[in-house]
Simulated scan of single mutants.
Amino acid sequence: MLNHSSGGTIGSYSLNARCAAGSATIDVRNNTGGSLSEAIVIQFALVKAVNAQAARRKARP
């Protein structure tokens, strides 16, 4: 979960998170036609999930 909380022009940026095993990448995109060089503040939260169905299948002999 990502939020552009302050700094820069709110709404001028798109945020996207990509997760992998043990890491995450945050992409920031300028939605305006102009050049922006503002320092923005991003709030984020990490949520861990487990697929219990897959875990049970792996545990069976």
Results as ranks from 00 to 15, higher is better:
17 A>C: 06
29 R>M: 10
45 A>E: 07
39 A>G: 05
12 S>G: 15
37 S>E: 09
52 A>M: 12
37 S>I: 09
47 V>G: 05
16 N>G: 11
61 P>T: 00
57 R>E: 15
44 F>Q: 06
34 G>F: 02
56 R>V: 11
22 G>L: 05
45 A>R: 01
2 L>T: 01
42 I>H: 02
7 G>Q: 09
31 N>M: 10
37 S>Y: 08
44 F>T: 07
24 A>H: 07
5 S>Y: 07
5 S>M: 10
31 N>C: 06
22 G>Q: 02
45 A>G: 05
46 L>T: 03
27 D>F: 13
43 Q>G: 11
3 N>S: 11
2 L>E: 00
58 K>R: 13
16 N>I: 03
28 V>L: 09
41 V>K: 10
39 A>W: 07
6 S>Q: 07
21 A>Q: 11
26 I>G: 08
51 N>W: 03
41 V>N: 15
4 H>A: 04
55 A>S: 13
46 L>K: 03
34 G>W: 01
26 I>T: 04
38 E>D: 15
34 G>A: 12
45 A>K: 03
50 V>R: 12
21 A>W: 02
6 S>R: 08
5 S>K: 03
55 A>Y: 09
59 A>E: 07
37 S>A: 15
33 G>N: 10
39 A>M: 11
57 R>H: 09
42 I>Y: 01
61 P>E: 01
51 N>M: 04
29 R>V: 15
10 I>P: 05
